Structure formats: structure tokens, C-alpha cells
Simulated scan of single mutants.
Amino acid sequence: MYLLVMRHGEAGWHTVDQERELTEAGRNGSAMVARQIARSSWRPREIWCSPLVRARQTAAIASEILNCRVTEKLFLTPEDDPGLCLDALLEESSANRLMIVSHMPLVGALATLFVDGHRRGIPFMTSQAVVLDLPVVGPGCADLKAQFLP
């Protein structure tokens, strides 16, 4: 399985956290990264995203460029346990090229859980995406193959 993990684009601070929307820079950065992914060999077939506005907007931009469907997942909000995502991936046998669009600290925790087997998390810039090769879905089983920056 190839798993792309992407942080949402830059969002404004004009409202409560759950309703924050992408800024123009956030929309542009997300589109730039999605276009880089589209030109690569890592193109996903499906996107899972957080239900929060900024992640949904980022996923919609990526979906339009990458021509794949988006499914909201309630376990992809900023403070969720990355183990919930791991469990969902173990149940999803058909996902072999999947993108997850979420938030810090979850995206950092997911990447380190899959690559290093712990949940301390690495920082992600807004709109940054990484590609993980998961021959077996489990902690410490992934190799970092590529990263995309705005």
C-alpha cells in the first residue's frame, strides 16, 4: 500500500477552530502540492479527510486535480489517536493508493507511527505531503518514499 499523508493548507484564524477556512495562500499551496503528486507515480485513488472545514477544502482541491473521490472520516481530527487510523487501514483491504488529509499533530503522529513505530510525531508544514510505502500495514513498517512541499 502507498499512503500519502498531507496536512491541510494554511487556514485563517477569523473563526472557531472547527470552521477555519483556507486562505488564498492555503488554496494555492494545496493545489501546488496536488499538481506535484499528479505528475508523480504516487497518484492516490481515494482521499480520506478530516470533517473540519480546512481539511475538507484541501481534500476537495486535491480531489479535483487528482480525479479521485473523497470520504470524510471522523477519526482524522487534530487530537485523534493515530491508532484509530491504523485500525481503519487494517480493515480497508482494497485501499492500495490512499491519501489522508488531516491536521497537526495527527499527520506527524501518523507518519512517525508508520515509519518509526512510535507516536511522538514530526512537524509538517501546511500543505506538505509525504508518501509512505507500507508493504504491511503496521507500526514501523513503512518507508518514506517522497515528500511534496508547496
Rank of each mutant, 00 (worst) to 15 (best):
A129H: 14
S93Q: 04
P51L: 10
A142Y: 00
G138V: 14
S50K: 14
A129Y: 14
F148V: 06
L144K: 15
I61H: 08
A129Q: 13
V136E: 14
P44G: 01
V16L: 09
S30K: 03
G26P: 07
E79Q: 05
V131N: 01
H118F: 07
L98G: 03
D133L: 14
M1C: 06
L98S: 02
E64N: 09
G9A: 03
R97V: 04
L66Q: 03
D87C: 02
F114C: 11
L113E: 14
S30R: 01
L4G: 07
G140Q: 05
P78N: 07
G140E: 04
A31F: 02
P139D: 08
D81I: 13
S102E: 01
V33I: 06
A59E: 11
I37F: 08
M32K: 11
I65L: 15
L3V: 02
I47M: 02
R54Q: 05
L4S: 11
Q36C: 08
R43W: 06
E79V: 11
L74G: 13
W42I: 10
E72N: 10
T15Q: 00
R20L: 04
V107H: 12
R7E: 03
L52N: 09
L113N: 15
F124T: 08
S63H: 10
C85Q: 08
M6L: 07
T71L: 04
I65D: 01
H118R: 12
L134V: 11
F75S: 01
P51Q: 13
A38R: 15
S94A: 15
V130L: 07
T77H: 08
M6V: 06
L86Q: 05
